[in-house]
Computed example of a mutant assay.
Amino acid sequence: MKVVVIGGTGLIGSKLVGKLEEHGHEAVPASPNSGVNTLTGEGLAEVLQGASVVVDVSNSPSFADDAVMEFFRTSTTNLLKAEVDAGVTHHVALSVVGTERLQESGYFRAKLAQEELIKASGIPYSIVHATQFFEFMKGIADAGTEGDTVRVPTAKIQPIFSDDVAAAVGRAAVGTPSNGVVEVAGPDEFPFDEFIRTGLAADDDPRTVVADPQALYFGSKLEETSLLPGPDARLADTRFTDWLARQQ
């Protein structure tokens, strides 16, 4: 099976390509570096020739409200049109658990717009909602840092290893289109401040972590369960503490 992976050279995309190839599929990474640009449409017709499945794990180079909306609307529209022309029979996209609950954020408004375009396209689809990756811990901490203090929301978080996300997206890609959303998350739920504090401590980072009810998560005010998956989520095996130990 030929699977084209849009964003195939990024964190998830590169892992996904490797996993698909291990299982005997023809996995083609597509990105501007390989001559495929979803914003302009360049290279899409060529790379999609003979493809059965397209997986979109690309991300916007800018998270500014207007720029991120323009990226997801334009790139998704161009990609879906090219898929119709090429006869692609399954579109898979990676999105975020809680997207519909985080609409104060321009990024999550753009992700929801992307999902709505996919659902309206007429192409059989599967959308994978993942929780925050372990690898994003430091970036999240940096976003909430004021001086030597990291202020994070008083919410819960259930992060996941990127390898487990890639595996979940790969299962969706080679499976039957769900025409719906599948949620994946890590095995353990943490208070947000505990997740960040544990991660920073493992890296000998001296910053103080404070749970602040007024702290925003990339522009959104969180309820306690805003970032948590539902009861039907598929839970991965890799624990955050085990992953941290392997980083040392």
Rank of each mutant, 00 (worst) to 15 (best):
A67R: 12
V47R: 05
P124E: 01
V92E: 01
H91M: 10
T38Y: 01
S52R: 15
T198S: 09
Q103H: 09
F240P: 01
G13R: 03
A202G: 02
G180E: 09
R151H: 15
K221N: 07
G50A: 09
V97S: 04
G35A: 09
Y107F: 14
D232F: 05
A143L: 07
S162K: 04
G18V: 10
A166M: 09
E224Q: 11
E46K: 15
L80C: 08
E100G: 06
G50T: 13
K221P: 00
E22T: 04
E146M: 06
T131C: 12
D148M: 13
I118K: 02
V3I: 15
A51K: 12
V165P: 00
V55Y: 02
V36C: 08
A245M: 11
P153K: 02
A173F: 14
E70Q: 15
Y107I: 08
V68R: 02
F161L: 11
Y107S: 01
T238K: 15
Q158D: 03
L235T: 03
D163Y: 12
T176D: 12
S52Y: 13
R234Y: 06
P213T: 10
P159K: 04
F190C: 06
E100S: 14
E22N: 12
S31I: 11
G98H: 05
K156L: 15
A245G: 06
P231T: 07
E194C: 00
Q158W: 09
G41D: 03
G175A: 07
E146N: 12
P206Y: 13
E223F: 07
G10Y: 04
G199L: 13
V174A: 01
M69S: 14
P177C: 10
T145I: 05
L39S: 10
P231N: 12
K111D: 07
A93K: 03
G98L: 10
D65E: 14
V36A: 06
L117K: 12
H129N: 13
S95K: 01
I157Y: 02
A130F: 04
P124R: 00
G24K: 12
A86T: 09
V57E: 08
S105H: 06
V88H: 08
Q49R: 15
